[in-house]
Amino acid sequence: MPKGPLEIAGYTVLPLQLPPVRSFPKPATHYLYLHPHEPRIPDPDSSRSLFLVNVPIDTTETHLRHLFGTQLSAGRVERVDFEGVPTKKRDIAVVQGSLSNSKKRKRVTADELQTQLENTKLPSTWDRQLQKSGAHAIVVFADKPSMEASLKAARKASKDGTKIVWGDGIEDRLPPLGVERYRAHDRLRYPPRADLLRAVNDYMTVFHQAEEARAREAARKVQEPDEDGFITVTRGPKNNSVAREEEIKELVEKQKKQTEGLEDFYRFQTREKRKERQNELLKKFEEDKKKLEEMKRRKGKILPE
């Protein structure tokens, strides 16, 4: 009876040999589970994607491109979406591309700019990200035949027991792990001033564009007729900075009016406390005066009138 590929619950099991390291010189076998990507809500990329489970913790996009393109000699990988990474990278890239080419771009909405704003980050302090133990990834291929050829090649390698060394041949293309990774992290904790300025400027540029887009959308909504067909007449558009200054002034005046009574109350309290303190001092002075008079009387001295 011919031996078939290893399968568990519909997943193809692909054994991978992890290369030895100093801390663990004996080679170990890691099992990668593959399955056609079948999400509950299909998207245009589902038919040409593979769902990978239990990827090694040091997995990078370079590893998976090398695995399917070179070691299995099957399909061409377009991109890899790892667990915990937003899957709307292409939408963000489209927004960034449209912003860079202002002449040919169509108007970007405030929501799209807000999405780009949320994904704008400072320079990373790690030169290589590690995956969680047992994490999954979605590998999107150039087309459906590439995905099917890759899955077929993985099943054949599992059936034949082909030895696949994880990351063999790409060691020099990836940042090192171990102590060197933490040394690099210590250096990246203090990025160059130019990189910080570039990140901050990019953030502020998108922030102002998002503010302008919100103002345009708000002005457009004001000009739209309501259910009865009427349009609300306003004083006209205002500059954002002027409008904000007026709003701040109104808030300050409103706050002053709300605290007018409280200020009088606090002054009244201060005045009453001052009076109480004066009365206590006068009372203590009279008591000390009586004590002094009593001491002089006992000594036989006549008190002056």
Rank of each mutant, 00 (worst) to 15 (best):
33 Y>P: 01
34 L>S: 06
34 L>W: 03
38 E>F: 02
39 P>K: 06
40 R>L: 12
42 P>M: 08
43 D>C: 08
43 D>I: 08
44 P>G: 01
44 P>F: 07
44 P>C: 04
45 D>G: 00
46 S>Q: 09
46 S>F: 08
47 S>H: 13
49 S>C: 12
49 S>K: 09
50 L>R: 06
50 L>T: 11
51 F>T: 01
52 L>C: 14
52 L>D: 05
54 N>P: 01
56 P>G: 06
56 P>W: 06
56 P>R: 06
58 D>P: 00
61 E>D: 13
62 T>D: 02
63 H>M: 07
70 T>M: 03
71 Q>I: 02
71 Q>K: 13
73 S>Q: 15
73 S>I: 00
73 S>R: 13
76 R>L: 12
77 V>K: 02
78 E>I: 01
78 E>F: 02
78 E>C: 01
81 D>K: 05
84 G>D: 10
86 P>C: 08
88 K>Q: 09
89 K>G: 14
90 R>N: 05
91 D>N: 04
92 I>R: 13
93 A>S: 11
93 A>M: 10
93 A>W: 05
96 Q>V: 06
98 S>C: 11
100 S>E: 12
101 N>P: 00
102 S>Y: 08
103 K>V: 15
103 K>E: 14
104 K>G: 08
104 K>Y: 10
106 K>C: 03
107 R>M: 06
110 A>D: 12
111 D>Q: 13
112 E>L: 10
112 E>N: 10
113 L>A: 06
113 L>S: 07
114 Q>G: 04
115 T>M: 09
116 Q>L: 13
116 Q>F: 03
118 E>V: 04
118 E>Y: 05
119 N>R: 14
120 T>A: 02
121 K>E: 14
123 P>M: 08
124 S>N: 08
125 T>Y: 02
126 W>G: 01
126 W>T: 13
127 D>H: 10
127 D>S: 14
129 Q>L: 12
129 Q>T: 13
130 L>I: 05
131 Q>T: 04
133 S>L: 12
134 G>K: 10
134 G>Q: 09
136 H>L: 09
138 I>K: 05
142 A>D: 11
145 P>I: 07
146 S>V: 01
146 S>G: 13
148 E>S: 10
148 E>Y: 02
150 S>N: 09
153 A>S: 14
157 A>Q: 03
157 A>P: 07
158 S>A: 09
159 K>H: 03
160 D>R: 09
162 T>M: 07
163 K>D: 09
164 I>L: 15
165 V>L: 15
166 W>M: 04
167 G>P: 04
169 G>K: 07
171 E>V: 11
173 R>P: 00
